[in-house]
């Protein structure tokens, strides 16, 4: 089948999808910028670590500095003016955007006729995509709360004293990797999939495939316990619990081993609660893509089935 450029253009040119394109561009840009700065700072750090004498007198920034310059910059007017310029540019952008790409209206509401696909706004498409893999309770409530909770917990479990106030990669590899994984993979990527890959019927359409609402796919979902031939609800529930909780436990144990070997400083600095929270969050974060893979590749829907919730 030929590559359907028209279909691709139809989706990417939708006014609805402008924010996500901007976001993709912005993410890319800031990733590059952050790493550029981080690499610069890391070079300086290496330099200073090698040369203690220099370290004593250096101004600790990769940018040039003259002693006659002030070390402290006042917020007013120096920060504010930059912010003001940014505000002006954003305002101009928004005005022009509002004029040239007005919000499209859909047909008059008809309760008997649902649009296909019925997509959430772009900032929720990541969550909508997660619904494919998780129970709504998990995808819509537990995971977002975990995300928020996790983000809130970071200051309390982050015991790495380095990397405060300057870009660096070397000194904060773990934090940056973890965050990038959580943001780029578990948020941006899912949103992009939800916007451009998921088509009518929430079916998977690679770019260049025509979005055909009448397409038929054969996907038989099964639950994990079915692979083992279990049917009794009690057995299934217990099995699922064992797999899930056990899996988390195993994961945490594995992480523990890894931490002790590769991140001893963190291990030593954190108290038990902090450590357990850290391990727990890491395991859960890794479990999400694991479950995604299980669904996409092996068509396994839930690993723990109970009458009250599924995982």
């Amino acid at each position: 089948m030929a590559f359907d450029w028209v279909q691709l253009w139809q989706e990417t040119s939708k006014p609805d999808n402008v924010p996500i394109l901007i976001m993709t561009a912005a993410v890319g840009y800031y990733l590059w910028y952050g790493f550029r700065e981080g690499v610069r700072h890391d070079r300086l750090i290496t330099q200073l670590e090698a040369d203690p004498a220099l370290a004593k007198t250096h101004h600790r920034k990769p940018y040039p500095f003259h002693p006659a310059w002030d070390k402290v910059v006042h917020t007013w007017p120096y920060l504010l003016r930059v912010e003001f310029l940014a505000a002006l540019i954003v305002t101009v952008g928004l005005i022009l955007w509002a004029i040239w790409l007005p919000a499209p209206l859909e047909p008059p509401a008809n309760p008997t006729l649902t649009t296909n696909p019925a997509k959430a706004p772009w900032y929720f498409l990541g969550l909508q995509e997660l619904l494919v893999y998780f129970d709504p309770w998990i995808a819509g409530v537990i995971l977002p709360h975990l995300v928020l909770g996790g983000l809130m917990a970071i200051p309390y479990i982050d015991v790495n004293p380095l990397g405060n106030g300057y870009y660096t990669w070397r000194q904060r590899k773990f934090a940056i990797s973890t965050y990038m994984f959580g943001f780029l993979v578990l948020w941006v990527l899912l949103a992009i999939v939800g916007t451009f890959i998921r088509g009518p019927g929430w079916m998977w359409f690679w770019p260049g495939m025509t979005w055909d609402a009448h397409r038929q796919v054969h996907e038989v979902n099964r639950h994990l316990h079915e692979l083992f031939g279990l049917t009794d609800p009690w057995v299934v529930g217990i099995f699922g619990g064992l797999v899930t909780l056990g899996g988390i436990g195993v994961g945490m144990a594995v992480c523990d081993v890894i931490f002790r070997k590769f991140k001893p400083k963190t291990f030593l600095r954190q108290n038990l609660v902090q450590y357990l929270i850290t391990l727990h969050l890491i395991v859960l974060m890794a479990a999400v893509p694991l479950k995604i893979v299980l669904k996409l590749v092996f068509n396994i829907k839930y690993i723990w089935v109970t009458p009250w919730f599924n995982v």
Partner: peptide, 14 residues
């Protein structure tokens, strides 16, 4: 800032 201000005034006029 001057350019941005002119752009702002221009876009508002637009």
């Amino acid at each position: 800032i001057a350019l941005a201000s002119i752009a702002l005034v221009g876009s508002v006029a637009y």
